[in-house]
Computed example of a mutant assay.
Amino acid sequence: MINLLKKQVIPMTTAAVNYAKVLYELPVPEEAVNESERLLQENPELIRCLENPLIAFEAMEDIIDRIFPKEIRSFLKVVCRHKKMGVWKEIFRAYRSMSMRDKKILEAEIICVTPPQKEQLEGIQTFLCREFHVKTAEIRITEDKSLIGGFILRAGGKEFDWSLRGRYFRLRQKLTRR
């Protein structure tokens, strides 16, 4: 399955990764995690309440108990108690990354001038599955006109640069070494 996503990548804090690890190790069903993330995404006022230091912790606990699935409530209360709700997006993103890694799904990014066609994406996915020994790849597409042509593929800590800009820089570097 190829998922085309267009989002900006934001680096994760150590705190967010640590909370995500704890959440991933808890016996919380993935549906409860997804539902909680959806609730937070759709309700910015809810986030403001759970981040607000002027609101008593007991009131935050009451909000969490009334809104969120019961399996994740304790975790969210701990996050609120330690005043880390400001990194909720990072926590859920790190959680998804861990889940995908365990399911043998690779996260990849294609940076290109124009989005690839369906057949090209399927070929790239086949390459990624073979190269990284995974079942499937979730591919995010980012457009960058400065590449001139071609694309850059980032996955699993590796970068494959098949862009014209990259080829130009490599050629220039090779010629200046002589």
Results as ranks from 00 to 15, higher is better:
E35H: 06
A16W: 07
I2C: 09
H82F: 13
D102H: 08
I105W: 00
A59I: 07
M60F: 05
K83S: 10
R38S: 12
M60N: 09
R66Q: 11
L153N: 05
V22N: 06
K84D: 11
V17Y: 02
R96S: 09
R130A: 10
E35D: 11
V9Q: 04
R167W: 07
R130Y: 01
Q117S: 13
K89D: 08
I47M: 09
I72V: 10
S36F: 06
V22H: 06
T142P: 01
R81Q: 13
V87N: 02
F127V: 03
W88A: 01
W88L: 03
R177C: 05
I72F: 07
S74E: 15
A155E: 06
A108P: 10
K7T: 14
D62G: 09
A59T: 05
Q125N: 14
P115T: 10
R140V: 05
E119V: 04
V79R: 07
E71L: 01
F160W: 12
E138G: 08
M1T: 08
A15L: 14
F92Y: 09
C80W: 03
Y24I: 03
V28S: 02
Q117C: 12
N34I: 13
T13L: 10
A108M: 05
Q117M: 14
M85K: 09
C80N: 05
L121E: 07
R38A: 11
L147Q: 00
R73T: 02
E107M: 09
H133D: 13
K21N: 11
V28F: 00
E30N: 11
K145A: 11
L128A: 01
K77T: 00
V22T: 13
P29Q: 12
I152P: 11
W162M: 15
R38W: 11
C80E: 06
P44N: 11
R73C: 01
